[in-house]
């Protein structure tokens, strides 16, 4: 199968769509400079390409294109209810990039966006301004990497570094950068900042091999985390989403023991645990495009517009995984 794909499909980022208004933006030039062989196509608005009708997300995932655009209108949003605020007030998130290079089978982005192409909003300076305006009113807890994996994109566009540099002296700003990448080396040259949390999503190898096929292995992720924690970064571990499958207990036993055998528990800032959950509309769309995904077709139960495991199973999973993490971290550092 892989051979067939190689024979017929163009490699990702073969084409870069650029909004007319950002052709000369320094970030645009920087990105384009990294893809000298790519075909550049001028567009008026990113939605002209990103929101076309009848796009095939699964096919596009095989050959993703880059779309470089300017983010206009609302830039920072209130934190969604399905996401953990880790006890922070004024919880916000922003999306400097739409879509992720990994394409995990269970990822809500497959149900959220009409296209698998990756939109980079190059006007990072407007994001910074918006945060500064918000900081004039209140302290801010801002998550940067929900609708993408920012660190995984660092070699293409170094937004993680720029956010870290920009935010590190802002006392009232706490930033979370969530990733599955093993790309810590891309930001290792930066001094650790006390208000930046590097959050790694961890899954058992069984889950990575089956549902997160394009992500780094557990071993590579743990190596990255260890380096970051040893360098003095605040590191968050996200056992989220926890998935239910045959022998899930054994898989999560191994994952958590392995994690804390690699990384000293006292170097972990905090951890979160959450079972798979997804909004009704996203799941509906994912079921349309993912024709043979057992994870998408699990008979989830709906509660307040969110699909997840039946209540009893959900409680069992959370309790079990909490018990495993509790062996290594104090309760107050574990968020469910």
């Amino acid at each position: 199968m892989k051979g067939l794909k190689k024979y017929s499909v163009i490699k990702s980022f073969s084409h870069i769509y650029v909004e007319e208004g950002v052709m000369d933006h320094p970030v645009t030039r920087e990105i384009i400079g990294k893809f000298p062989g790519a075909v550049k196509i001028g567009i008026k608005h990113y939605k002209d390409v990103f929101c076309r009708p009848r796009q095939n997300f699964i096919v596009q995932e095989m050959s993703r294109k880059l779309i470089l655009a300017r983010k206009k209108g609302e830039i920072i949003y209130s934190g969604p209810e399905v996401c953990q605020d880790f006890g922070n007030k004024n919880f916000y998130y922003t999306s400097p990039i739409l879509n992720c290079i990994y394409g995990c089978e269970y990822c809500y982005l497959r149900g959220m966006y009409p296209s698998a192409n990756i939109v980079v909003f190059v006007n990072i300076e407007d994001y910074f301004k918006e945060v500064e305006n918000l900081l004039k009113q209140q302290p801010v807890y801002l998550c940067l990497s929900y609708d993408t994996d920012l660190l995984a994109m660092e070699r293409i566009v170094p937004f993680t570094s720029r956010w870290i540099v920009h935010a590190s002296d802002k006392r009232d700003l706490i930033i979370e950068i969530r990733t599955k990448s093993a790309n810590y080396s891309a930001i290792r040259q930066l001094p650790p900042a006390g208000n930046i949390i590097l959050a790694w999503t961890l899954s058992p190898s069984e889950v990575i091999e089956k549902y997160e096929q394009k992500t780094p292995s557990l071993e590579l992720r743990l190596k990255s985390i260890k380096k970051a924690a040893d360098d003095g970064w605040k590191v968050r571990l996200c056992f989220d989403p926890v998935l239910y499958f045959e022998n899930w207990q054994r898989a999560y036993d191994y994952l958590i023991n392995q994690t804390f055998a690699t990384i000293q528990p006292e170097k972990i800032y905090d951890a979160s645990i959450g079972v798979f959950r997804i909004s009704r509309d996203y799941l509906k769309r994912m079921r349309k495009i993912a024709s043979a995904s057992e994870i998408i077709f699990y008979p989830y139960e709906e509660r307040n517009g969110i699909y997840s495991y039946p209540e009893e199973l959900k409680e069992e999973i959370l309790e079990y995984v909490f018990g495993l993490v509790r062996k290594y971290l104090p309760t107050e550092k574990i968020f469910i």
Binding site: S8, V9, V39, I41, Q55, V59, S63
Partner: peptide, 20 residues
């Protein structure tokens, strides 16, 4: 053609160039 423009309406269409 990776972009097709209707000169009269200025509307542009973009085929996905996926296959080699």
């Amino acid at each position: 053609c990776h972009k097709i423009i209707n000169h009269d309406t200025k509307r542009a269409f973009y085929p996905d160039i996926i296959v080699k």
